[in-house]
Design a binder for these strands. Structure first.
Ligand SMILES: [Mn+2]
Ligand SMILES: [Mn+2]
Ligand SMILES: [Zn+2]
Ligand SMILES: [Zn+2]
Lengths: 135, 135
DNA sequence: GTTCTAATTGAAAAAATTCGCAATAGCGAA
DNA sequence: TTCGCTATTGCGAATTTTTTCAATTAGAAC
């Protein structure tokens, strides 16, 4: 059985994700750590973010501009991503709980802890409506 | 105002996605079309799949092995993806409707038409349970 | 502490995806 | 039909991400 090792690189990468608020890219993490770990390689960052995600320590999401990572801990949260303006609205876990619970009752154990729903925010809907009326 | 043009490439790419059941990758589509369109380039395939997704003609998803595309039409459906065995279970649209409706009432217009929820299927849960008991 | 072994690393190469741009070709207007 | 504009194409280069592999090292066993 394979044991996950907590290497210096992995520990540092996790600490960096935890230290930054919000969503960070692999590239950001790499550039943050490179100065203090000159021998760090991009592949190590990619590999570890994936490993940390498997471990459930970070969440992974692509909200349109490539993969971003975020520390897992405290209350989970989710996002409503506007395809019009790019605005990201927070969605509380309690708002998705009933839906997830339904899946659990069905026999599926949900691991998603950072759901992203794409669509249009109210102001972008108004804009679209105005445009339509102008035609 | 920019008009979306229906080029031969775009038409063929859409037809290919529509002609293949289930989820297909950009690479698959490229290799399918290359013989009959020798001058077709990968970038055109990537660009068009993205454009077709914006047009709402295809859905895009990454269920762990890179982006896959699927024709939009008929009843929308969603997926429960098992992180243990990789199995993909279908989830009807009616199962997510109440959740989406709630977001609509909240003022957010949902565009996601192919949701993927990650977790563990019942048989993988049993396996994990047995493993735990063995320790 | 020492030993052993398999997980992990860094570097380079490969693969996947995006970008920049001159040439081409949809399609609306005339 | 023909014309004109500009969205789109194919190509090559750039960027991003994954893979491969020999060298290293975390951590279990002693
Ligand atoms: Mn978040
Ligand atoms: Mn599907
Ligand atoms: Zn918006
Ligand atoms: Zn499973």
């Amino acid at each position: 059985m394979s044991t996950m090792r907590m290497t210096i690189q992995r520990r540092k990468i996790l600490a960096t994700v935890q230290g930054l608020p919000g969503h960070v890219s692999a590239e950001t993490i790499y550039h943050r750590l490179k100065p203090e770990m000159p021998e760090l390689s991009p592949s190590t960052v990619y590999r570890n973010l994936k490993a940390l995600a498997d471990m459930g320590r970070v969440s992974v999401t692509d909200m349109g501009q490539g993969w971003v990572f975020e520390a897992v801990g405290g209350t989970p949260h989710h996002h409503l991503v506007c395809l019009g303006c790019g605005e990201v609205e927070d969605l509380s876990d309690s708002a998705v709980r009933p839906f997830f619970d339904q899946l659990e009752r069905r026999g599926f154990h949900v691991a998603t802890n950072h759901l992203c729903i794409y669509g249009y925010c109210s102001s972008c809907q108004e804009k679209a409506g105005a445009q339509e009326a102008a035609r």
